[in-house]
């Protein structure tokens, strides 16, 4: 564990907290993509299958990871519940039109072609990594369709993007300090994922400087 990894995870938790705070305080999930949340649910539930096999108390890191995994799984399930049930009438269904089955199918094909080992768990893990890289796309599309972005929603995406960027710092750190090599799959997907946020980052920082609400062109 290094400072980049810890900061990244903290930002990930903060982003989830911001998302729930936005929905709860405004009693509305306007501007939030159900499709992105659904994709995250698939990502977490395919990646964290090892929860069934790993003893949480094996080490301090395993314990930490287990807590985080359960938190990510339960919070994304709860978010989906809020959007689909309690605040259903505020959900922007008309604009949330990204065809996610292409993302899911594409990730599945990529996972069958590129994986660390030819075992079911490795292929499912690769699938989750590919899918996570593109899971934010429906959310970004929704914001582009509607243009005006609520502050708290833009903070949410900013935290999520920063979390990925910090993971890259973490990988560079581990490459040199722990001689951790052969992580090409996670590195490549993590970099692609971070790049997807680049455009958003640009407008976010611009809007923060001007002290205005974020407006996407």
């Amino acid at each position: 564990m290094n400072i980049f990894r810890l900061a990244a995870d903290v930002l990930h938790v903060v982003s989830i907290f911001l998302l729930l705070l936005k929905i709860k305080t405004s009693h509305s999930c306007a501007g939030i993509s159900l499709k992105t949340q659904f994709l995250y649910m698939i990502v977490f539930s395919t990646r964290y299958l090892d929860l069934f096999f790993t003893k949480p108390w094996h080490s301090a890191l395993t314990f930490y990871n287990t807590i985080m995994k359960i938190l990510f799984l339960s919070s994304s399930a709860y978010t989906i519940y809020l959007i689909r049930n309690r605040y259903k009438h505020t959900y922007d269904k008309v604009h949330d039109t990204f065809r996610i089955h292409y993302l899911i199918a594409g990730s599945a094909v990529l996972a069958l072609v590129f994986h660390i080992r030819l075992t079911p768990f490795e292929i499912i893990w690769a699938f989750s990594v590919f899918l996570e890289a593109v899971a934010i796309m429906p959310q970004l599309l929704l914001l582009q369709e509607t243009g005006q972005v609520e502050n708290i929603t833009s903070h949410y995406i900013f935290c999520l993007g920063s979390y990925r960027a910090l993971y890259i710092c973490n990988w560079i750190w581990r490459y040199f300090m722990e001689h951790r090599r052969n992580q090409w799959l996670a590195w490549a997907c993590g970099t692609v994922q971070t790049l997807l946020y680049a455009d958003f980052f640009y407008y976010y920082i611009l809007s923060q400087r001007q002290g205005k609400k974020l407006r996407l062109p």
């Binding site: 990930h12 090892d50 096999f53 790993t54 990871n65 075992t119 490795e122 951790r180």
Partner: peptide, 10 residues
């Protein structure tokens, strides 16, 4: 699964 040191991240 045979995760090794390769899956110690979230």
């Amino acid at each position: 699964p045979s995760v090794g040191d390769n899956k110690d991240e979230l």
